[in-house]
Amino acid sequence: MVSIGTVSDPLSLGYDIFSSLALIVNLTAAFMMTYDHLAQTYGAGLTLVLEVTTAFFGVDYVLRLLTAECLYPNVGKGRAMGKYVISGAGLIDLLSFLPAYLPVMFPGGATAFRMFRVARILRLFRINRYYDSLNVISQVLVRKRQQLLSSFFIILVLMMASSLCLYSVEHDAQPEVFRNAFSGIWWSASTLLTIGYGDIYPITTLGKTFGILIAFLGVGMVAIPTGIISAGFVEQYQRIQKLSEYGLEADIHFVQVMLKPKDEWCGQLVRETALPSGLMIAVILRGTETKMPHGDVQLRAGDRLILSGESPRSNENMEMKEIVLHRSHPWVGERIRSLDISRRSFIVLLKRHGRGIVPKGNVTLMEGDRLTMYTIKEGAEEPEELPRPIV
Rank of each mutant, 00 (worst) to 15 (best):
L158H: 15
S163L: 08
V142Y: 01
F153G: 07
H171L: 01
S138Y: 06
I154F: 10
I137A: 06
L124I: 13
A110R: 12
Y131P: 00
I154V: 14
I137C: 03
T111I: 04
D172Y: 06
L156C: 13
S162F: 13
Y167F: 11
F125S: 15
R117Y: 10
M160N: 14
F116L: 14
A119G: 08
Q147N: 09
T111R: 11
L158F: 15
C165R: 03
S138T: 10
Q146E: 09
L122W: 12
E170Y: 05
V140D: 02
L124K: 11
I154Q: 04
E170Q: 02
L124A: 14
H171I: 02
R120C: 02
I127L: 08
D132L: 05
S168R: 10
S168A: 13
I121H: 10
V136G: 01
T111D: 15
F153N: 01
R129L: 11
L141Q: 00
I155S: 05
L134E: 00
I155K: 07
P107Y: 01
R145A: 09
A119S: 15
S151C: 06
R129K: 13
E170F: 06
Q146Y: 10
M160H: 07
A110T: 15
L122E: 15
L166Q: 05
V157R: 04
N128Q: 10
A161I: 11
V157L: 13
F153Y: 08
F125T: 15
L141C: 02
M115Q: 11
I121A: 14
E170V: 04
S138W: 06
Q146G: 08
L134R: 00
A161D: 07
S163Y: 09
S163G: 10
M159K: 10
K144Y: 00
F116S: 03
Q146V: 14
M159S: 13
R126W: 09
S150D: 09
E170G: 04
F125V: 13
L149M: 10
H171T: 02
F152R: 01
S168N: 09
L166A: 05
G108P: 08
V157D: 03
T111P: 04
R117V: 07
T111L: 03
R114E: 15
Q139Y: 02
H171D: 01
Y167W: 09
L166T: 03
D132R: 12
R143K: 12
E170P: 02
L156D: 10
M115V: 14
I154G: 04
L164I: 11
L166K: 00
V136M: 05
G108T: 09
A161E: 11
R143T: 03
S151Q: 08
F153K: 08
R117S: 14
